[in-house]
Design a protein around this nucleic acid. Sequence first.
DNA 1: CGCTCTGTTGAGCCGCATCAACACCAGTGG
DNA 2: CCACTGGTGTTGATGCGGCTCAACAGAGCG
Lengths: 291, 291
Amino acid sequence: MFQFSIPRWRLSNAKAEAPRNSYCVFALGRRPSGNMIRPFARCRLPTALLAKFRARNAAGLAVADLIKQLFSRERSFAAGTDLARQFSQPANCALLIEGVAAQYRILSNGRRQITSILVPGDFVNLHSMIVGQEPYSVLALDMCRVLVAEAEQFRSALSNSTELGRILWMETLTEAAIQRESIVSMGRRTALGHLAHFICELHERVSMVGKAAGNSFQLPLTQSDLADALGLSVVHVNRLLKTMRSDGLLSWSNSVVSILNEYKLREIAEFDPSYLGFRQVRQAGVSFSEA
Amino acid sequence: MFQFSIPRWRLSNAKAEAPRNSYCVFALGRRPSGNMIRPFARCRLPTALLAKFRARNAAGLAVADLIKQLFSRERSFAAGTDLARQFSQPANCALLIEGVAAQYRILSNGRRQITSILVPGDFVNLHSMIVGQEPYSVLALDMCRVLVAEAEQFRSALSNSTELGRILWMETLTEAAIQRESIVSMGRRTALGHLAHFICELHERVSMVGKAAGNSFQLPLTQSDLADALGLSVVHVNRLLKTMRSDGLLSWSNSVVSILNEYKLREIAEFDPSYLGFRQVRQAGVSFSEA
DNA sequence: CGCTCTGTTGAGCCGCATCAACACCAGTGG
DNA sequence: CCACTGGTGTTGATGCGGCTCAACAGAGCG
């Protein structure tokens, strides 16, 4: 049913072939390989989101029900397709429930910067629901499944429930916190620290929505994607991963990351997960699904 | 009345003396010098914020009145003092109406990264009103004046008006958009482009709240602050400024930036102001106060 | 007066980019 | 069956952008 072999835009070192001066959110995608590990349960309805709310002690039952009602239709996107396009005025709001996506921007020299990675439980286009227009595009890196709500219904629900607004506003605040942390990494961490922080954060986020298997989780990024997320070159990312592997910090193959020495990794990253806003703190080395 | 000579934390290349692993928002401050230019009208009440709303066609009169009522008390902060502290649970919400502030983070090696600059019309601690705890601190770079609202009253106003929530949520969305743009700059722009973008953005934001005088505006950052905002070294920032000056792009002295060749500057920056969310677009080279 | 903060410039070096080549794999078409 | 292609990962060689260290000048302040 889904085309997995859709040619993906070359992300790093792309010079001439891609749209310019635009933000994008894209589903990061790669072809399934024969021995690809998919150990994670499918996420039905917005359980990923609700797990996040729970971890934050954030949402009451009423809001959870409201969200369930609003986001009732499901859509799928093949890897390499756009979940959202910059400057469009989408007719519905999407909540990612499976897969990994990335919002990005391309400059006129063809260089690309991924500004954020979306995992299940994240909203794709809250911005456009409030401001009216997509500020970037989103690409599916993986095969992505989303739940959609009609923009009209969504907006009217917002104007009837201050609680719903507060909860979703909190999502935006967390997104901003994540981006701040990313700015810190880019500006003042070493390349290795930046990479370590990136991985720690994604592990934490994926764990919190019940999508990690202990210290392993699925992360369908190519090294090229990773380079564009970190603001480094592909070659350098390759070498960083090599040193991490040889230092016994992690393994990464077939889109599955396994953190082998979480303590050390966090130390290198100076990772402090409090900015993610989870009250329920995951002990390093112990994932929720084990607890 | 105000102490201007408060020793400021050394921002760049600070090695050992500063608090660690913490976000901060600080009022960026510098001493007033004899010939310091202060050509800008003082901002009474939340006029800066209201100008912003107007530029976005965002807020109705009811909300504007509500905000005026809520933010009725005024406080001042000397340059170098904290407007907000990480991990605190502030008892009120602050809206900056004069001065410039910065939120930042310090890593264990003593390096500092400024994650965002606040100008009049920006809220200091919306995050903590919703999430409950400051995610960073804010330092006054300048002498800062803020209007404050009681957290209790603020929260109850939020739970009574979905419109108020929507408007303030929009502020957070814009903040996130600004940070995304900063990530793009850090990752994929040249250092010169990054600096150019930084200046274009601040000029735009300051203009939109009526605080610029044509192509000049007050920007009380030291080169050290600037380095920490851009993620560069002080020395390199100094050299970038030198080339910009000698290329006739801008002048910058006594905390006043004058953009001399806005077209060229925007070109270098690949600056597209649409992410700031202003419907009412300022023509390059023409400021509102002139129109 | 000395002290601190800021801005400025030079010298030297390193982290990371760039360029290039090659290996591997999955598809694809003859 | 094969050659061929495009995406990805890997490694070496080389060079540059920006960092680090260091020194000095000017301004404001105690």
